[in-house]
Computed example of a mutant assay.
Amino acid sequence: MTDTSASGDVRLTGISKTYGSFTAVHPLDLTVPQGSFFALLGASGCGKTTTLRMIAGLEDPTTGTVLLGDRDVTDLPPHKRPVNTVFQSYALFPHLTIHENVAFGLRRRGIRSVRKQVGEMLDLVQLGDLAQRKPHQLSGGQQQRVAVARALINHPQVLLLDEPLGALDLKLRRQMQLELKRIQTEVGITFVHVTHDQEEAMTMADTVAVMNGGRVEQLGAPAELYEAPRTTFVANFLGTSNLIEAKVTATGGGEVEVAAGGATLRLPADRCATAPAVGGRLLVGVRPEKISLTHAEDAADGSPASGGTTARNRLTGTIVAASFIGVSTQYVIDSPGSGELQVYVQNIERDPRLVPGAEVALDWNPAHTFGLDAAQDIAAGVTDGTAEAA
């Protein structure tokens, strides 16, 4: 059994938050392992920011407890918790130099000799040469790093990040994703990061909690959530999924066989989020980049160019749209009985015949197929919701 007195895990037990008749966060249990980079991911209104604010002490939970290691901090005010928060707005003092901004927390605690600590922290965020500049003389990404340094110099047990990269442009945001991950790895403290950006969460976090409607839909490593979603919301919210309505025709030998779109498809039984029964319904899912696309002329003989073996799942259809986006071409295929399917093909050797109107075959490895409960909303998570509270 783990000795929690030696552990710095963040543990939320039965935590919830209601505002009058509205429940922003339904009772949840969540453990953030010490030293991990943990992301709370979801659309606006899913409860992620409210959850973060309850860890910070900026919101009082309606029920439940917040523990840092073996210490119950539920009733402690924010300044008495060993946590610091970095907000999207940075909140730097415009009249102070970068050095003085970072030193602020130490000086507040009566520490006079701060030069060495501030220097080390600015070196950590690679801003040592800019110590005497004012915030307005820095780029958005540099200001963000100053905010992180100012929080980290207080040696918090947990650093909370509330949409910290939301104000940056795309290129700078991607650079800062790698930068924050590097900093977290170097200092080794727990980061809890709130974001609505799927790529951001998957790039940085060891563990992601996907939130929806005040509940955690699924918790796991980024690759696990992407490759094996357990709900339609997770399948659609994390990237793009093709979800095909199917009827279960056989089970056994660790496999499930279904009928969909006039074809027989197979998938591993352990990749089904619900126990399939013969005659029952299933949503069969496959990611767009897992699918090979072949012109109908080449697919007719089952040639190797098509993946050409009956061991692969196969559907047919007609290209209705094609978008060249550099690294890949994204196709929309109308497949009879399966609806519109998306296929992403890397631009290595482009087939000039793959244009709108072309008849094609789609095939993929059954091992890349997953199964979801057909009673769910097939479109859940496709577009960002605008629920009542964050």
Rank of each mutant, 00 (worst) to 15 (best):
V10R: 07
T13G: 03
I15M: 12
Y19R: 11
F22S: 13
T31S: 07
P33G: 01
S44L: 03
C46Q: 07
G47V: 06
K48I: 10
T51N: 02
T63G: 10
G64A: 02
V66Y: 07
L68G: 00
R71M: 07
D72L: 06
V73K: 03
D75L: 02
P78I: 00
K80T: 00
V86N: 06
S89F: 10
S89M: 05
S89K: 11
F93I: 05
F93T: 07
L96W: 11
G105M: 00
G105V: 03
R109M: 07
R109W: 04
V114H: 06
R115M: 01
Q117S: 14
V118Q: 10
G119I: 15
L122S: 13
L122A: 04
D123Q: 14
G128H: 09
G128S: 15
A131V: 15
K134H: 13
G140L: 12
V146C: 04
V148A: 08
A149G: 06
L152G: 06
V158W: 11
V158H: 04
V158E: 05
L161T: 08
D162C: 06
E163M: 11
A167K: 14
D169K: 10
L180I: 06
K181H: 08
V187H: 08
H196D: 08
H196C: 07
Q198E: 06
E200C: 11
A201R: 10
T203V: 13
A209G: 12
M211E: 14
V216E: 05
E217K: 08
E217I: 13
P222E: 02
P222T: 01
A223V: 11
A228C: 09
R230W: 00
T231H: 12
T232W: 00
V234Q: 02
G239L: 10
T240V: 15
S241M: 06
I244C: 01
E245M: 03
G252N: 03
G253V: 03
G261C: 07
A269H: 10
A273R: 08
A275F: 04
V278I: 15
L283K: 00
E289P: 10
K290S: 13
S292P: 00
L293R: 01
L293T: 04
E297R: 14
S303E: 09
S303V: 11
A305S: 14
S306A: 14
G308Y: 04
T316D: 14
G317H: 06
I319K: 07
V320D: 10
S323K: 01
T329N: 12
Y331V: 07
D334C: 01
G337R: 07
Q342A: 10
Y344Q: 10
Q346K: 12
Q346M: 12
D351P: 04
G357Q: 04
A358K: 08
V360T: 05
V360D: 10
A361P: 05
W364F: 07
P366N: 00
T369G: 01
F370M: 09
F370N: 08
A375P: 01
A375I: 05
I378A: 14
A379Y: 08
A380N: 00
G385W: 06
G385F: 05
T386H: 15
E388C: 01
